[in-house]
């Protein structure tokens, strides 16, 4: 089966860790992930600027590693990202901001990518809130 997974909370939320463990189980079961779409506060999970205490799980780093390992299509909604201060090089230039903080492996794009993924997939699940 083909899954679309949406992450709606920052990496501090339990739901974002749950999303990752779910995504890992999806691939372990032999299913495909068409796209992981980061929306609402989920765009903050794609930040490269997080500092996590040594005795805590760095869920953002784990998401990034998971995406890289499996070459997943990880899209971050550009409108949601801009309004929360997550920018790639191109947007930082466009809006003359000092910081490029979109982590490697993520792409900024529009909600059309969510709909495109839904059209290709069989199942959609989102993880947000706490």
């Amino acid at each position: 089966m083909k899954f679309v997974i949406s992450v709606l909370s920052s990496s501090n939320a339990p739901s974002t860790r749950r999303a990752l463990r779910f995504a890992q189980a999806v691939l372990a079961a032999g299913h495909d992930i068409v796209r992981v779409f980061f929306y609402q506060d989920g765009v903050l999970t794609a930040s490269n600027n997080l500092v996590v205490a040594q005795d805590q799980q760095d869920i953002a780093k784990q998401w990034q590693a998971f995406i890289a390992e499996h070459e997943l299509d990880a899209v971050v909604c550009i409108a949601a990202a801009l309004r929360r201060g997550v920018l790639d090089h191109s947007e930082a230039q466009r809006y003359q901001r000092d910081t490029v903080n979109l982590a490697e492996g993520y792409q900024l794009s529009g909600l059309g990518q969510l709909h495109d993924a839904l059209q290709q997939a069989d199942r959609f699940i989102s993880f947000g809130g706490e």
Binding site: F3, Q24, A25, A29, R123
Partner: peptide
């Protein structure tokens, strides 16, 4: 988690 994934497959949505 594996059973959670299986449930998502079993239910239509």
């Amino acid at each position: 988690y594996p059973a959670f994934v299986a449930l998502c497959v079993d239910y239509a949505r």
